[in-house]
Amino acid sequence: MGQIEWAMWANEQALASGLILITGGIVATAGQFTQWYFGAYSIAAGVFICLLEYPRGKRKKGSTMERCGQKYMTKVVKLFGPFSRNYYVRAILHLGLSVPAGFLLATILGTACLAISSGIYLLAATRGEQWTPIESKPKERPQVGATIKQPPSNPPPRPPAEARKKLSEEEEVATGVSSGPQENPIPVTDEVV
């Protein structure tokens, strides 16, 4: 049985918890809760987490599906170097960011989800995983001979495809040879001999 890559689970969990933090922060700020400033903090922390977690890391085995527009955020995350690659750092960062949001009821769900993703990142770090960017491979140029399946049968200049169809129909009528369904020259009767 294959080994589980925990970082993929942690990435999805952290991205979802960032979105939950943003939503809870909007509710707390717009609802003017008594400690609404924790809601504003949750919005800022959630946006930061979403930007950090949006680019997926490359899997060790198999292929990794890249998120839409991920290549632009990958460049930004790569700038942080070992701080963004190391999952120990991400585990501590997520746990630290989750603590202030835990003081408000509207953001406590995002806090719990972020703490869980911190634990999963810690597990991934102890297993020796680290974030590596998905590099796009240069496109291979097709071989000239491989692209041509069947060479053209008539020399240039060739008429367009519609004109070729009309010409072949006219030739059939002129020669009397049809490529369509043909009649049986021997009549078939119901008599049994």
Rank of each mutant, 00 (worst) to 15 (best):
G2W: 15
G2V: 07
Q3W: 11
Q3V: 12
Q3A: 14
I4C: 05
I4V: 11
E5V: 11
W6L: 12
A7T: 11
W9L: 14
N11M: 08
E12W: 10
Q13P: 00
A14V: 07
L15H: 07
L15Y: 15
A16H: 09
A16D: 01
S17D: 09
S17E: 06
L19D: 04
T23D: 01
I26C: 15
I26W: 03
V27E: 03
A30P: 01
Q32C: 02
Q35M: 11
W36M: 06
F38P: 01
F38Q: 09
A40P: 01
A40C: 14
A40M: 13
A40N: 14
S42N: 06
S42V: 10
S42W: 11
I43G: 08
A44H: 06
A45K: 13
G46C: 02
I49S: 07
I49F: 03
L51H: 03
K58L: 08
K61N: 07
S63L: 03
M65A: 10
M65L: 14
R67Y: 05
K71N: 03
M73C: 02
M73G: 04
V76I: 09
V77Y: 07
K78Q: 15
G81Y: 03
P82C: 02
Y88C: 09
Y88G: 08
A91M: 07
A91Q: 05
I92M: 01
L93F: 06
L93C: 07
L95R: 00
L95G: 09
L95C: 05
G96E: 07
S98L: 02
S98I: 04
S98N: 02
V99S: 03
V99I: 15
P100D: 07
G102P: 00
G102S: 01
L104D: 03
L105F: 15
G110V: 03
T111S: 07
A112Q: 04
A112D: 04
C113A: 11
C113D: 08
L114S: 06
L114G: 02
A115G: 13
A115F: 04
A115C: 12
I116G: 01
I116H: 00
S117T: 09
G119A: 09
Y121I: 00
L123T: 06
A124M: 02
T126D: 12
R127A: 13
R127S: 10
G128M: 10
E129V: 02
Q130D: 08
Q130I: 02
W131P: 05
T132R: 12
P133K: 00
I134C: 06
E135C: 00
K137V: 13
P138T: 13
P138L: 02
K139T: 08
P142V: 07
Q143K: 14
Q143G: 10
Q143F: 13
V144P: 02
V144G: 05
T147W: 11
K149G: 02
Q150W: 00
Q150N: 04
Q150V: 06
P151A: 08
P152D: 05
S153A: 11
P156S: 09
P156H: 01
P157N: 11
R158C: 04
R158Q: 12
P159A: 11
P159D: 06
P160A: 08
E162T: 10
R164W: 00
R164G: 11
L167A: 15
L167M: 12
L167T: 12
E172Q: 13
V173W: 14
A174F: 15
S179Q: 05
G180Q: 12
Q182P: 05
P185K: 01
I186T: 14
P187W: 08
P187G: 08
V188L: 05
V188I: 15
T189H: 06
V192I: 13
V192A: 08
